[in-house]
């Protein structure tokens, strides 16, 4: 039986096939559908969550490999939907279709937790695993800078 701490709550996943990637546990078993499926091979970043604080692609992450670890999803990113990145995203009008944006936000949040004044290169490195087919990259970059300023 696998136990995870998800958004602060202890969860015992006794009925779940332990080979199941965390993505599908979140979406199908726990109803946390903010985390998205995009590729199933860790290529696109739509499924990015925080695993013990690190940005991690969870579509290729069987839960048996992360027993006892702590997971944060978009649903747990902020208390009142007020993470500076969420506010900066709305302010800058970043989203187009919006599908990849949760993954983008989770990667950006992990970056800012480590680096409160990232350069463009820092941002490009941290965000290189997150694809956006709508092409919102320039606004993502400026919104991360704006959120970093707000957090300093």
């Amino acid at each position: 039986m696998v136990t995870l701490r998800i958004n602060g709550d202890e969860m015992s996943l006794d009925d779940v096939d332990p080979t199941t990637p965390l993505l599908w546990v979140l979406r199908d078993h726990l109803g946390l559908t903010g985390t998205k499926f995009g590729c199933g091979m860790g290529q696109c970043g739509s499924c990015t969550i925080h695993l013990d604080g690190r940005a991690t692609r969870c579509c290729v992450l069987p839960i048996r490999d992360i027993d006892g670890m702590s997971v944060t999803t978009i649903e747990g990113l902020s208390e009142d939907d007020d993470h500076p990145l969420q506010e900066a995203w709305v302010e800058a009008g970043v989203p187009q279709c919006g599908y990849c944006q949760v993954g983008q936000l989770m990667s950006a949040a992990a970056l800012l937790a480590d680096n409160d004044e990232p350069s463009d290169d820092d941002i490009d490195r941290a965000m290189s695993g997150n694809l956006c087919r709508c092409g919102t990259y320039t606004r993502i970059r400026s919104a991360i800078h704006a959120a970093a300023r707000a957090m300093r």
Partner: peptide, 13 residues
């Protein structure tokens, strides 16, 4: 916008 950045937006999937 707000639903998208909080993960509450409902897509087909």
């Amino acid at each position: 916008g707000q639903d998208i950045v909080t993960g509450r937006a409902t897509f087909g999937i």
